[in-house]
Design a binder for these strands. Structure first.
Length: 191
DNA sequence: GGTATGATTGACT
DNA sequence: GTCAATCATACCA
């Protein structure tokens, strides 16, 4: 790429979550300059039993009901910070979970935070991203289109593959997981 | 006030 | 392949 990648704008996120989830593959996500290329995402819709907004608004899922382009962060299994991006116009309450990155920036910081050396293991899962990028629960509801977050548009040529979602107790069979074809940085192989 | 549970990970048989 | 860790949140009394 000879030119600087364009930052994603709010219109990019004001679309149905599956479109956003597919479109995010190949884009770059940074938190305080640390992160990489998005290679795996999952979509969560409002009328989706697995979506945190399914049961209606609560204190935790409030950001989902706000404007698109915001972060929704929550703690899973008491250990892992899961990073989502809110999609759709205000109030629809859908989101995209960022599941894996190809690390490209701040490698040393990520290796230190994860206690690992291999790039391939740094961000190959949603909980790992929370740890590697040092994303905190308090950032839930924050604008993901401005500092300390950076979201850059994808280059050309990203081949996206869809498959079933992972780890859900409900509606996991929906083929709403999107991967960069052939990437070695996925949480699990595509399909 | 108490209890059940999870969009996971890492360690172990 | 199986399984425990660990705590904010949701839900019930």
């Amino acid at each position: 790429m000879s030119t600087t990648a364009a930052a994603l704008d709010r219109d990019f996120f004001a679309r149905p979550p599956r479109a956003v989830a597919a479109g995010l593959i190949g884009c770059t996500l940074l938190h305080r300059g640390v992160g990489g290329i998005i290679v795996e995402t999952e979509a969560y819709e409002r009328d989706d039993p697995a979506c945190h907004a399914f049961g209606g608004p609560t204190a935790r899922n409030a950001p989902l009901f706000g404007p698109p382009g915001r972060a929704y962060v929550y703690l899973c299994y008491g250990i892992h910070s899961m990073f989502n991006l809110v999609t759709e116009p205000d109030g629809i309450a859908a989101a995209v979970l960022i599941r894996a990155l190809e690390p490209t920036a701040g490698l040393d910081a990520m290796r230190t935070r994860r206690g690992l050396e291999r790039d391939r293991d740094l961000c190959s899962g949603p909980g790992k991203i929370g740890a590697a990028l040092a994303i905190e629960l308090s950032q839930s509801g924050a604008d993901a289109l401005s500092e300390p977050f950076t979201l850059l548009a994808a280059g050309t040529g990203a081949e996206v593959v869809a498959g079933p979602r992972i780890g859900l107790s409900k509606a996991a069979e929906y083929p709403w997981r999107f991967c960069l074809a052939g990437s070695p940085f996925l949480s699990r192989p595509a399909g």
